[in-house]
Design a protein around this nucleic acid. Structure first.
Lengths: 116, 116
DNA sequence: CTTGACCCTGACATTAATGTCAGGGTTTAT
DNA sequence: ATAAACCCTGACATTAATGTCAGGGTCAAG
């Protein structure tokens, strides 16, 4: 299928699909007229990419394990675990930082409101 | 005092101090040689700026209430409360999103580990 | 009068995925 | 053969605070 159809099927913009290809997350063959031709499997692949992006995994990291997870179960790909773990730690740290800020803001809001 | 001294006293880079001035968070008078001259009060002011930046408040928002909070108690400045409240909501949303991602990652990590 | 430590402005770089535009081919249907 | 709807590449913009560099003044101590 061509890029417009893949975009329509997945809801991902043409711009992003081209970017994924540039980042080696997606491949296509070129027709004689220069158009990209994608395999039907690309649709599932794009959904997988979007799924990992939504977890905050970068395209570079996705590229490192995508081939494996497309062919196997995620658990089978050893590259995946360390990436998930470091991402988890990053998110934990972020949550802690935000929680501190949240507490601070709540305190300040409360003391402003009490001053009425 | 000159910018180098203000930077040394506060630990904030000269580049950032110039940026704060550009954003109207800080003022200085120019000496005949073109150098900025800061009042001694600037030191406290810079610490206040850094404090709000650390809460995730943008320079633009800080600019809208800084003059007031420097002269009064925070609770006295009505501009402050809506900004704090919207920032709090933003942070809450962010924490929720991150928590969902965290749960998802934990589930996936667990199922990878169980597959051994 | 020279050196070193200041100070100045202006400008570009950083991050990462995506939007958008310009300029230009291709295909399909009328 | 022309219009509409595709497709292509390349390039710039987005966000926000900060780093860094170039090119150039100023000033104090020696």
């Amino acid at each position: 299928m061509r890029i417009g159809e893949l975009s329509a099927r997945t809801g991902v913009s043409i711009r992003s699909l081209r970017y994924y290809e540039e980042q080696k997350l997606l491949t296509s063959v070129r027709q004689p007229n220069g158009y990209r031709e994608f395999s039907p499997l690309a649709e599932e692949q794009v959904r997988t990419i979007q799924f990992y992006l939504a977890l905050g995994i970068s395209t570079e990291q996705i590229a490192s394990f995508l081939t494996c997870v497309l062919m196997n179960k995620e658990a089978f790909c050893e590259e995946v675990l360390p990436i998930f773990e470091s991402k988890l730690k990053e998110i934990d740290d972020q949550i802690h930082l935000l929680s501190q800020i949240k507490t601070n803001l709540e305190d300040r809001i409360r003391s402003i409101q009490e001053s009425d």
